[in-house]
């Protein structure tokens, strides 16, 4: 066989970005934010290994905290899992979810955090919150829902405790099966680990193109099926915890 002409221009790996949107309002103070910090810190090595071993895609991480307004943990854009380090975040303030939606919409653009569609897989967007939005969020969510990256993303929302407004989270993900609830720190950590790692695996895998004709499950559908099964198992395995949240 002749030498490959691709040696002069090798096919590059695609990029898949895992977005964390983390509520750092005052009600997250204590074991909630502590569990979030621990879980994310613990999954970084897994994501790094996955990214290194994945011939299809490099996994990058972008993280935003929202309370009184928003703040990017990764202000310069998504960071490769190979070099990403998690610095613990603290909880204080209100729940400006609308501001988070607006900021996410602005960054889901090839002129901001995303690259050309040709070199990318649809991102994973993982929202964690424990309460009610304290700012106007409907209009920002409507605008976010028109963003193409958002439309194609795998979207998951984690309700931390019983006080999270799950209806808002359902509207965010567009699917009630994409909203999961953790009622104690053990479940919270397990869910963060499962959602982050498994959704990244599904999202960064090559898949033949499908038109919107419903013949093959989308990555979102495929992930949700796994999520449902995993959540049932986690709940079944969970021991009664002494830090059960109200």
């Amino acid at each position: 066989m002749p030498e490959s002409i691709l040696t002069s221009a090798p096919v590059p790996r695609k990029t898949m970005v895992l977005f964390f949107l983390i509520d750092t309002s005052g009600s997250m103070f204590g074991t909630k934010i502590g569990s979030v910090n621990n879980a994310i810190e613990e999954i970084i090595p897994d994501l790094k290994k996955m990214s290194e071993a994945n011939p299809d895609a490099e996994i990058k991480i972008a993280a935003m905290e929202f309370s009184n307004g928003i703040k990017w943990v990764t202000p310069d854009g998504p960071v490769s899992a190979d070099v990403f380090r998690w610095e613990p975040i603290e909880a204080m303030g209100v729940t400006d979810l609308g501001a988070a939606f607006t900021e996410l919409r602005e960054k889901l653009s090839k002129s901001a955090f995303m690259q050309e569609a040709a070199g990318s897989y649809a991102p994973v967007i993982f929202l964690m919150t424990d309460g009610e939005p304290t700012d106007e969020w409907q209009k920002p969510l409507e605008e976010l829902s028109e963003n193409k990256w958002f439309v194609h993303a795998i979207k998951v929302a984690l309700a931390v405790g019983d006080d999270a407004n799950e209806e808002v989270l359902r509207k965010f993900t567009g699917n009630e099966n994409s909203v999961v609830k953790a009622t104690n720190s053990e479940l919270l950590k397990k869910m963060i680990k499962f959602v982050s790692v498994r959704s990244s695996q599904v999202a960064s895998r090559s898949a033949a193109a499908v038109s919107d004709n419903g013949l093959k499950p989308t990555k979102q559908e495929e992930f949700l099926y796994e999520l449902k099964t995993a959540v049932e198992e986690m709940r079944g395995d969970a021991v009664v915890s002494d830090d059960e949240w109200d």
């Binding site: 002749p2 002409i5 691709l6 695609k14 299809d56 033949a208 193109a209």
Partner: peptide, 22 residues
């Protein structure tokens, strides 16, 4: 003929290293 041989090698490689699409 030579061009076709190069193409026959190139397309599967793009599929393997790219998005594995058609």
């Amino acid at each position: 003929f030579k061009g076709k041989r190069v193409l026959d090698k190139m397309l599967p490689e793009i599929s393997e290293y790219g998005n594995r699409d058609d």
